[in-house]
């Protein structure tokens, strides 16, 4: 029984193909301006890797912001449900998932069986998402990929307290003018993102193991700031970006009545 999960986010599209409880292949591409085209393209890429074709798939579940635009999906399920399932597969001891993507952030309480206990999400405000980091990287003239490692060299992170991305930009510029070092500012930016998400998640509550997923999970600086913010150690799966698509593929198996 081969199933696939297709996660179409605002920035990237991912497909994971699963068979016999194992990941066969996966692919990640930029979404671009067409959800339908991106879904098809990324799925074909994953199929190619596994040397399969579309008819080989018994069930496809789509998820993410563009989940309703995937014509070949049998069902659409929200990314929160899929994330919980995906993380549970990779790290069975996971009880809290912090997901920070390009456009939104979520904190999910997960049960032993991978179902969702509670969740909270922010998709209204750029602060506390990858977008915040992107904007700030732009102002500092840095590549977003460098941000994490730069922040780790900071001795005295700045405190950036603006709740609005636009104002934080201004705040950062004045810190620069005051002579604060680049690494202290970058560390401050990471703290700001982590702090927003940490406070948001209090309503769900943090229980170990805490797992960090989403595009921003690759940023060690944010991970460290989150750990400091919630006071618990944080695990990061090897490929944090595909967790949603993985969960979708696993849920697809359930649809076929396959026991775990």
């Amino acid at each position: 029984m081969i199933t696939a999960g297709v996660d179409v986010g605002a920035a990237t599209a991912k497909t994971v193909i699963v068979a016999d409880g194992k990941i066969l292949s996966y692919a990640v591409i930029p979404t671009g301006d067409s959800v339908a085209r991106a879904a098809e393209k990324v799925t074909r890429a994953a199929l190619e890797q596994a040397r399969l074709s579309m008819p080989d798939l018994s069930f496809v579940i789509s998820t993410g912001y563009g989940r309703n635009g995937v014509s070949f999906a049998n069902k659409a399920v929200t990314e929160i449900i899929c994330h919980a399932k995906g993380v549970n597969f990779l790290i069975p001891a996971a009880r809290t998932v912090i997901d920070i993507g390009g456009q939104d952030s979520k904190v999910i309480g997960v049960r032993e069986d991978g179902t969702v206990r509670d969740f909270v999400m922010n998709d209204k405000c750029a602060a506390g998402t990858g977008r915040f980091l992107e904007v700030m990287a732009g102002v500092l003239g840095l590549d977003i990929k460098e941000m994490g490692s730069i922040s780790l060299t900071s001795k005295e992170p700045c405190s950036i307290s603006s709740t609005c991305t636009i104002f934080a930009e201004t705040e950062m510029v004045s810190l620069r003018a005051d002579g604060r070092t680049r690494e202290d500012i970058v560390a401050g930016i990471h703290r700001a993102v982590a702090s927003r998400v940490a406070i948001m998640g209090k309503t769900v509550g943090y229980k170990e193991q805490v797992v960090f997923t989403g595009g921003v999970a690759k940023n060690l600086g944010v991970k460290n700031a989150l750990e400091a913010g919630i006071g618990l150690p944080i695990l990061i799966p090897e490929e944090p970006q595909i967790v949603g698509a993985l969960g979708a593929a696993l849920l697809a198996r359930r649809e076929l009545g396959v026991l775990r």
């Binding site: 307290s161 603006s162 104002f167």
Partner: peptide, 9 residues
């Protein structure tokens, strides 16, 4: 005011 630091400018 919302007690936000960047209101100052």
């Amino acid at each position: 005011s919302d007690y936000d630091v960047s209101e100052r400018g």
